[in-house]
Design a protein around this nucleic acid. Sequence first.
DNA 1: GACATCTATGTGACCGTGCACATGCGAAGG
DNA 2: CCTTCGCATGTGCACGGTCACATAGATGTC
Lengths: 337, 337
Amino acid sequence: MAASGERARVPSIRDVARLAGVSHQTVSRVLNDHPSIRPETKKRVQDAIEVLDYRPNLAARALVTSRSRTIGVLSATIGEYGPTSSIASIEDAARAEGYSVTTLNLPETTPEAIGDAIRQLGREQVSGIVALAPQVRVFNVLRGMAAGVPIVSLQDASGADGFTLSADQVAGARAVTEHLISLGHTDIVHLAGPQDWIEAESRMRGYLDAMREADLQTFPPIRGDWTADFGHFAGIELARRPDFTAVFAANDLMAIGLMHGFRDAGIDVPRQVSVVGFDDIPVAAHVWPPLTTVHQDFPALGRRAVEMLLAEIRGESAPEYAPVVPQLRLRSSSASR
Amino acid sequence: MAASGERARVPSIRDVARLAGVSHQTVSRVLNDHPSIRPETKKRVQDAIEVLDYRPNLAARALVTSRSRTIGVLSATIGEYGPTSSIASIEDAARAEGYSVTTLNLPETTPEAIGDAIRQLGREQVSGIVALAPQVRVFNVLRGMAAGVPIVSLQDASGADGFTLSADQVAGARAVTEHLISLGHTDIVHLAGPQDWIEAESRMRGYLDAMREADLQTFPPIRGDWTADFGHFAGIELARRPDFTAVFAANDLMAIGLMHGFRDAGIDVPRQVSVVGFDDIPVAAHVWPPLTTVHQDFPALGRRAVEMLLAEIRGESAPEYAPVVPQLRLRSSSASR
DNA sequence: GACATCTATGTGACCGTGCACATGCGAAGG
DNA sequence: CCTTCGCATGTGCACGGTCACATAGATGTC
């Protein structure tokens, strides 16, 4: 469409200024909508911008302001459903506010790797960072490091000082455990996430709280790794000690694997054992039996993270949110004893 | 850790030059490893860089070179497993080569939206773009638009001129269809993806090719939307017309929903009907019955996309790859008649 | 020995913005 | 009527790199 040829280089702020008959600084003021500009002048400049199809050079702007209007997403999780959908909504929200998004996956969670990542984002002069750092360790390192750049962490960190944000994992876990108890289960096993993960701890705490409150005895939790394969393995192992009637798996993937393991071992879900999960991944409603689980609104979390970060960047006070409450999704994998 | 305080601004190339006793240009040469630098000089400069903990300012470099050493990922897909894992590996590969990654989701697939996205990435002066544009329409617009910036499309586009790349979807679909045929099925329904999607077409073609070659009659395909919910609906509908003994669903999510629908309708998989999917998502092995499907190596695709893009950026010739061949994963959802 | 060539390095301009400061002008205040 | 102030705008420089060109010494060539 655009008339090609013409080796004209892309127009700069001075080209606009010349065409509009003003100084380059006035153009700059229009761009950053400075208060004292006469409406008439503003109009002339905007017309010139239109005519030349001028676009501000982001690199030049970043150089002089040493801020890039870019948000860095630092992620220490790999390909899981939850984080992934949060990231997508972070991007959308940031773009809507005129920020670019650059993502950085942590290959490993050593303090050095985290430090490198933060420094890298620093070099790119990000305006702020959203961290999806589900491991306690990573979170702590982050806290110490991020000096200078606003940062929001998308994890549940009880009593954290900085800006953190998450769904109320404990409440969700508690709700689903109470659901099992209300069905008459008393011997409930928890298939937990890895030791170091914040969310694993929160979900376990919810389970423990609910059990204690109902005066039920708890089993030592089984430590999983979030994968369906582990769930499968755990199901076969658990089948050997049928001293329980329900399992709360810390995520859906493990829950689904677990049901598979139970089936291989000849245990019927939910007739003999009830199984519940956490996350409500898209297939949860369609596996057999459809999985009772806890739904999390990941997109909402991503959007809020961006709102909080922008508030911090702009020096505003953080918006106060009611916590995102995860919702119980009752399906067929849980039944009364 | 780092001695704070000290309002010293971050060191620039000139600070390094002063400390090393050379000109700033010599420092620049060392950084871009220019050939004619005396080893001794180089050493001095490197030491100075070390001492000052100097890091090149990316914005300044981008300003003068008008290239940002950033790769833009343009994605028109939302939260699906395949694209997501490709994107993660694109990031890793790009970072490993010293490129940053910025991601941009297309909210809609109109030509205008695509144009805006490309222009936005242009403003950010990306060095190249990897497009995950699974719809035919998007792909075509992209082809016309991207003038000026190297671009690689991660989709199967037969006869495309530019640089495109994908797993051989047709071969995968064909293999899984032939598998059903070899089990003795003759009446095989295809639950396809949406009309406009390149991969939907490729998978359907593989199905049609295999059927034609075996001299089998084909049914008009059912158009789905990739979701498990649709699969469920389709299962219930299909149960009313049992003129088939096997279904090839164009992705795992629909296949899993389909099995759910069949179960609701009282049809046993695989005894009465065989079901196969495509993608091999992480739960595919753990649903009941475990799903026969086609495994795609998404991370490998992402890595290759980056390699191709970098080759194009550097003006090298594109590396020649053997196509990524999807692999059949035989499980229990398919059985002989 | 004069000149061309190559190597190693330095000098100054320039990329496109925003910022600090200066300036002209009209309104308000005494 | 003069001073003071706020508004609207202009001037020049700085940001931190790279590029084009200049320069000085070493080496080779006839």
